[in-house]
Structures are given as structure tokens and as C-alpha cells.
Computed example of a mutant assay.
Amino acid sequence: MSAILPPAERLWWKHPLDRVEGLWIAIAFAWCMVMFFMMVGWHIYGKQNLSTETYKTTPEMFSAKTQAMVDKYTVRTETDEKIPVVHPPEGSDVYLIGRLWSWWPILELEKDKTYKLHMTSMDYNHGFSLQPTNINIQVVPGYEHVMKITPNQSGQFSIVCNEFCGINHHTMVGRLYVK
């Protein structure tokens, strides 16, 4: 048989499987199964992936919820843009908006208390990366991502967009305080 000429027998699937081909198919299938069950195992037992709920939303609805939280729990403003710093009580729904090129508002949470963090993007895909803890979430417009978080370290954390979102992508940095 030649690789240049088409096979004489066009129905290739009716040809018998070579022993070596069968061995490689079996090895590839076994490896796929190992990788599949490792992903499930790491999610359940490794506690490395956040379990999120995702809901459809509109920018107007999410903005209204975020503004209500900001109006209720603002403790001060920071930066030249006067970004509000909100300090919600334990168990609260906390809202965070990603938009060109900022995260809004600044969150101030308490250590070892649980919150429900709601995030969305108002314009383009953004990546939520909490540094230095290495939490990464894709934030997509039109969807509200909800996750339970319990900060276990005090300090100031940076929220960085790790999904290229335009010319000022490098300036899309926010803050999160844990007291």
C-alpha cells in the first residue's frame, strides 16, 4: 500500500484491526479514563476547584443589586475615582462587577466568616484572579457567577483580570480586604 495512492479497498472500517493498533487504542482509552476520574477526584477530595452556581442576568438587574449593597454597606471610599469600600455582615450576598477596566466596588470581608460572592461582567469576558491565593474564575457577561467563600487569611488581596479585555487590560486591578 502507498500513502500517495488511495487504498484499493475504500471501506477501511471493514479491515481487520492490527494488534498494535488495538493496543494503542486500549492504552489511550485507559489513560482517558484515569484522567477523567482524577478530575472528578480532585474536585471532590482535593478542594482545589470552587463550586459555582451560574444564573442568567442582565447588566441592569445586576447593577441594581450591586448598587443596593453599596448603598447599604459602604464604610468609606478609596482611590482618586472614589471607589466605595463595602463591609457587609457575615452571610451577606456580596456583589462584584467587572467592567472596562475596573472591579467595582472594593470589598472588605471578615476572616473565617462566610459570604456569597456574586460576580458578572458588564461588557466583555474578564478573568477574576485573586492574588496571591490563585483563585481563578472566568467572568462572562450575561451570567451571574455565585460562590460561597470563607476567607481564612487576613490582609489585602489584589483582584486581577487575567483574560485580555482591551488596551487598558493591564490596569484592571481591584482590591479585597480581609480583617
Rank of each mutant, 00 (worst) to 15 (best):
M1A: 09
A3V: 10
A3I: 10
I4G: 07
L5Q: 14
P7S: 01
P7A: 03
H15M: 00
P16M: 14
L17D: 11
G22Y: 11
G22N: 10
I25G: 15
F29G: 09
C32P: 06
C32D: 08
M33W: 08
M33Y: 02
Y45K: 12
K47A: 08
Q48N: 09
Q48I: 03
S51C: 15
S51R: 15
T52R: 06
T52W: 02
Y55M: 07
K56G: 14
P59I: 13
A64G: 12
K65Q: 07
K65C: 06
Q67P: 10
M69C: 11
T79E: 15
I83K: 11
P84G: 15
P84I: 13
H87Y: 05
V94F: 01
Y95I: 02
L96W: 02
L100I: 06
S102M: 02
W104F: 13
W104Q: 04
I106A: 14
E108F: 01
Y115C: 01
L117N: 02
S121N: 02
M122I: 14
M122G: 13
H126T: 12
F128Y: 15
L130G: 09
P132Y: 10
I135S: 08
I137P: 07
V140H: 02
V140Y: 06
G142H: 03
E144F: 06
I149D: 01
N152R: 07
N152I: 03
Q153P: 00
F157P: 02
F157S: 01
S158L: 03
S158M: 04
I167V: 00
N168W: 09
H169P: 02
T171M: 07
M172A: 06
V173C: 08
V173K: 04
R175I: 00
V178K: 01
